[in-house]
Amino acid sequence: MDENNLIKMELTVNGEAVSMIVKGGRRLLDFLRDDLHLTGTKEGCGEGECGSCTVHLDGQSVLACLTPMERAIGCSVLTIEGVGSPTNLHPVQAALLDEGGVQCGMCTPGMVMSALDLLERNPDPTIEEIIEGISGNLCRCTGYKKIIYGIQQAAQELQAASPAGTVKESVE
């Protein structure tokens, strides 16, 4: 846009239209955290290894630390802030709490986003498919078991609630 590398970020974030002029050339992660103050998306490694920064870009799971912010222009971004709220948890979130799949919580937002992506593509996953679905998300606390069972429980609840087998992301 000019020599200071200002760009116009026009996109939809968690269902709301966003239009901002900000410094370009950064990562989608920086735009979300530093410009929009949506700090639920975490940075654990900055090199695409830990999955803590997983968000959805036009319904696809992406790592915000490897995604240039410009790529999100004109797109719809879903972050953890757009998935359920403390008083209205998404079934995946509720099931993670119920199973005890949250300890330090640093991996949790990324796990939730990966789980939503998995269930969108595969509403009735096997345990092996759940493991594969979250194998890009590192957790150092739980040993993964309670997260895996939490996702399985959520899948069953979502299946029961939506017999057609379609899972819709709840966007606030």
């Binding site: 103050h37 949506l38 700090t39 639920g40 953890i80 802030e81 979130q93 709490l97 949250v102 939730v112």
Partner: peptide, 23 residues
């Protein structure tokens, strides 16, 4: 009893504030 953890709802909704989230 396996009661609901005090810290877990903020964590699962992305509302918990870690040091790097402070501004």
């Amino acid at each position: 009893k396996s009661v609901l953890r005090k810290d877990s709802v903020p964590k699962v909704t992305g509302k918990a504030i870690y040091t790097g989230d402070l501004h």
